[in-house]
Amino acid sequence: MHEMSLAEGVLQLVEDTARREGARRVKLVVLEIGRLSSVEPEAIRFCFEAVTHGSIAQGAALDIVDVPGAGWCLPCAQTVAMSERYGACPTCGSHQVQPTGGTEMRVKEIEIE
């Protein structure tokens, strides 16, 4: 259930930014959630609606940008696409793959007025 904590973290960043910018309302929040991060986009969507209730971001739309997974495969010595965090290399089947992309969990931008 730590998606709730993450949603709180998102709201905190959004509120801080909105306050700094003198915003009246937050219309849109854009997150980047990598496919190899430990977050379920659907769960965070659910929690986001719950935690923003009564805040400046109430009713804001939530865009989740899906970042594809990538990793560096040691045996292949190249970057390969990864669909799961601890998955095997799609080319050689080795598990010696270091994730290099798709692990992010970030608040990218917000739309305010």
């Binding site: 973290g9 960043l13 915003a23 970030r106 990218k108 305010i112």
Partner: peptide, 17 residues
């Protein structure tokens, strides 16, 4: 003419922790 504008944040969700 939109009064709305985009603000870049680009911060990790766990930044506070």
């Amino acid at each position: 003419m939109s009064q709305a504008r985009m603000v870049q944040i680009e911060q990790d969700i766990l930044a506070k922790n």
